Computed example of a mutant assay.
Amino acid sequence: MRLLIAGGGTGGHLYPALAVARAFRVEEPGGAVLLVGRAGGPEERLVPAAGFELETVRVRGLDRDAPWKNLALPYLIPTALRAALRIVDRFRPDVVLGMGGYVMAPAVAAARMRRIPYVLHEKDVRPGLATRYFAARAAAVCTTLPGTEQRLKDGHVVLTGVPLRDGFAPRTPDVPPRRVLITGGSQGARRLNQATWSVLDQLCARFEEIIHVAGQQGADGIAANARDRYRGLA
């Protein structure tokens, strides 16, 4: 079996994709797996380091904060689709797995044009634009959270949870909690960072440790708010 996994751009899409790739390699030792991501994304470093083959496509999502940047999309979208078609034709996958987000769109569109079955995975309770667009003709849409199926009226929806690498295990949480993890994803979230720093004194007074994944955009804020019990990660 030949599996093409499309997605990346952020850790939220990339790490589950790598978890699936590892599981596929165990289940199908004679199979082939290829990951397709965004040129310039973290996948260029992380996928080869994990021992998998990577192809990249120049692609960019819809920018809602700076709409003028979307003027280039009429040029970028056809270019990305042609690149994805070349990758699909060269690799000849039996199935394509789209891991959500705009990065998957060119490869999933190419699969649909070549009549190759594709499956989608959505990590948010509110599915993104790419998932909504491709859901109707997907073989299945795998979801992480209950309630997503109510927003995806078209397509075969299956609640699967999020793929995880080996090493995670169920545990009984401490009551009352002693350690708090705050994360806005691998890139951080500006509003969440600001909200965390605005109440950091209260959090540190209540909990033994605050672990805050602020992303690169929050590096200066981490330094400015350094104190005991607070561990900021850029």
Rank of each mutant, 00 (worst) to 15 (best):
L3I: 13
I5H: 07
A6P: 07
G7F: 08
G9M: 10
G9A: 10
G11E: 11
H13C: 04
L14N: 06
Y15K: 02
A17G: 14
A19F: 02
R22L: 06
A23R: 15
V26W: 11
V26Q: 15
E27H: 11
E28G: 00
G31R: 09
G31E: 09
L35Q: 04
L35F: 03
V36G: 04
A39R: 15
G41Y: 03
P42N: 02
E44H: 05
E44L: 02
V47N: 05
V47G: 06
A49E: 14
A50T: 03
F52T: 06
F52K: 03
E53D: 11
L54H: 08
T56L: 01
T56S: 12
V57G: 03
G61H: 08
R64A: 02
P67H: 00
K69S: 03
N70M: 01
A72V: 15
L73G: 00
P78W: 11
P78M: 13
A80Q: 00
L81H: 13
R82H: 13
A83C: 12
A83W: 05
A84Y: 11
A84D: 11
R86V: 04
Y102L: 00
V103E: 00
A107G: 04
V108R: 04
V108S: 05
A109M: 14
R114M: 11
H121T: 06
L129D: 02
A130V: 15
A139L: 13
A140Y: 08
T144C: 12
G147T: 07
T148A: 13
Q150G: 07
G155V: 02
V157I: 14
V158M: 12
T160I: 05
L164R: 15
R165Q: 14
R165N: 11
D166I: 02
D166Y: 08
F168S: 03
F168M: 12
A169K: 14
P170Q: 05
T172Y: 06
P176G: 04
P177I: 11
P177F: 12
R178D: 10
G184W: 08
G185N: 06
Q187D: 09
G188C: 11
G188Q: 12
A189N: 13
R190I: 09
L192V: 15
N193S: 14
A195I: 00
S198H: 13
L200S: 11
D201C: 05
D201L: 10
C204F: 03
A205L: 13
E209R: 15
I210E: 11
I211T: 13
H212A: 12
V213M: 14
Q216H: 13
A219H: 11
D220L: 12
D220I: 01
A226E: 14
R227K: 01
D228C: 01
Y230Q: 05
R231I: 12
R231D: 01
R231Q: 12
